[in-house]
Nucleic acid binder design. Structure first.
Lengths: 239, 239
DNA sequence: CGGCCGTTTGATGGAACTCAATCTACGTGG
DNA sequence: CCACGTAGATTGAGTTCCATCAAACGGCCG
């Protein structure tokens, strides 16, 4: 199947990410390839885990983007984090985990059950992945708490670029951008209208090129400097 | 010493919290009591862990409040989470952890080294504590992203009340409130001036009583309903 | 073609910020 | 014992950023 052949390829996004977090031994790679055989495809806006539901077993994102969302009683929504290929869902280690948020697909999505870490190298990769998740939550908090609308947009774009670089999904300095302006608004604590205006400013100044579902940052270094963006580092040996 | 006698007391805040997360066996309790013998005291505003510093070993908060802070280059600050008695600092499980945020004391603080989990019951308590930490981060994100100033203040007060209840530090419906309005502003993504005005509204309406370093919520149930506050539950057997 | 989703634009209002000054409580030293 | 300094809380006036409301536009698919 395509799923298998792509996973067997060392260049597959999800594997590339996990291998970048901790060097994977062959048994870990085959475990991942096996797991990917039973992959599941989901349409955008499809819910794949409800808040409060018990977590059967962790999932691994193979392709596409998803989000952890919280719905307020009056219809407001907050996307708490974005989930990209190679990210894990429900990756926690205490005995009776409950989902604390809903997961929705933001694009066509394929997921599989995350193989339980038989090898220490895969376990380490999971742990590092979890630590990175937390770092992204902290970054999200400072974005929402102290950044202006423009800073929020730019900082998030830089974070996504960093993360997609880990799984080799950045080419020519650009990457796929499946987010609607509405989803971006729910992520950044803004209204869709204001997100639109902010994006246009960035476009008019030539700082971002965003069209046809692809995003290019014209001068990433300048943007990093401007918003004081911090790249979450992994302490494990990179690559 | 006082530190010992108070920890030996099963009613000590830090132990009460951990015991509430997972029933602790006697060996876990003595390990905690031993650790508390070597406790360290810190003054308010004292930094106890710098961002980017390697984490020697996890710490346990015995008394007082602390905060995980991020400083921006232009002087803005964001408090990402508050740390209360019984909370752990640097409680993560991958091989080479780096601190991703600075920790500062917000009140007179005593901490000790968190005993490494020899017993499975203590390990479970640590894991649940870590899961709760993450739930609080998610709550913080929705506060900052989608709540108005008043909702933020109320929701945070309710969360702190929940958390302090876990360690038995709520009495007569009220609890110690060491936060300056400035610290509250840095937590909630507001300015001190606006926090002040928001607090006064709540006071004038008689919804909170805040004076002499103590906070009382007049009608918690009503406030919970109003802001749609969600109590992060622990799946482990409570109490 | 027509409906829908996502984007774009305009006009207006309001929540929160900024700047600046005053007030209070408290500790410290002359 | 009082003068002083400082940290935190309070108040006022003016401003800005972002939300709200409303409508139009564009592409895509049935």
């Amino acid at each position: 199947m395509t799923a298998f052949s792509r996973l067997a390829d060392p260049a597959h996004p999800a594997i590339r990410r996990l291998a970048a977090l901790a060097p994977l031994d062959p048994s870990a790679r085959t475990a991942l390839a096996d797991a990917a055989l039973r992959s599941r495809a989901l349409r955008p806006a499809r819910e794949l885990l409800a808040e409060g539901a018990p977590i059967a077993n962790p999932l691994l994102i193979l392709n596409g983007w998803a989000a952890r969302v919280r719905f307020l009683t009056d219809g407001r929504r907050q996307i708490m984090s974005l989930l990209l290929p190679g990210d894990l869902i429900g990756n926690c280690r205490h005995s009776r985990p409950l989902s604390v948020s809903t997961i929705v697909a933001l694009s066509p999505l394929t997921v599989c059950a995350a193989p339980s870490p038989g090898s220490p190298s895969l376990e380490e990769a999971y742990h590092v992945s979890h630590a990175l998740d937390e770092a992204y939550l902290l970054a999200q908090i400072t974005r929402l708490g102290r950044f202006s609308a423009e800073e929020r947009v730019v900082d998030l774009m830089l974070e996504l670029r960093d993360r997609l670089t880990l799984c080799g999904l950045v080419s020519d300095g650009g990457f796929a951008w499946p987010l609607t302006q509405s989803a971006l608004a729910d992520t950044l604590g803004l209204t869709p209208v204001h997100v639109n205006r902010t994006l246009q400013q960035l476009r008019r100044r030539g700082e971002v090129v965003l069209r046809a579902g692809r995003l290019q940052l014209t001068d990433p270094a300048e943007l990093i400097h401007r918003v004081g963006h911090i790249t979450a580092h992994v302490t494990a040996t990179q690559s």
